[in-house]
Design a protein around this nucleic acid. Structure first.
Lengths: 88, 88
DNA sequence: CGTGTAAGGAATTCTGACACG
DNA sequence: CGTGTAAGGAATTCTGACACG
């Protein structure tokens, strides 16, 4: 059974809210999705929905990008972390 | 200083998400606002933003309405509860 | 009282592409 | 590589009003 309520993970925000909260452009947010760094949900009419968790990930990404890290590297890094969590 | 992060109280959702999560119509959600039962935030372009807390309040309201309680009574009830919390 | 609906405008979102590099 | 932008269509949101009652 799936957990019914998790404020942090629930995909509820639209693009506008995300750009407001992160300071990133729509273009940036969508690009990071194509790079498989974030995974917004989609409504029946194709609009994206983001979670608080996504917002936090985006802010991490923004920092790394500023440091000159490539999206490819950020993704590998995320994948590694996910693996570690699974091993635990 | 204001608390910077509270997933539950942060006003981040648009009307569409709210109607999806509560099952209410846009009309109902807006009406309950005119009755001072919920207080969404507004963006610079006038669109409403709701919090998880608002969603929960809306579901409470929906239940009461079904029981035949008047919005006026629901509001008085909410006001009483707020007062109690303050006294504590 | 509480809610549905049609109306018309404004703001939002989406995709694919050109651009720079 | 990462991001800006103009383009055009589709979906969303808003307000004020008429309707029923």
């Amino acid at each position: 059974m799936k957990k019914d309520y998790s404020y942090r993970e629930k995909k509820v925000m639209t693009m506008k809210t995300v750009t407001e909260m992160t300071g990133l452009s729509e273009r940036q947010v969508r690009y990071y999705e194509t790079q498989k760094l974030i995974f917004p949900a989609r409504t029946s009419s194709r609009t994206r929905r983001y979670s608080f968790s996504d917002i936090e990930t985006l802010m991490d990404i923004a920092e790394k990008i500023e440091e000159g890290v490539l999206t490819r590297e950020i993704r590998d890094d995320f994948d590694k972390k996910r693996k570690k969590i699974r091993i635990k």
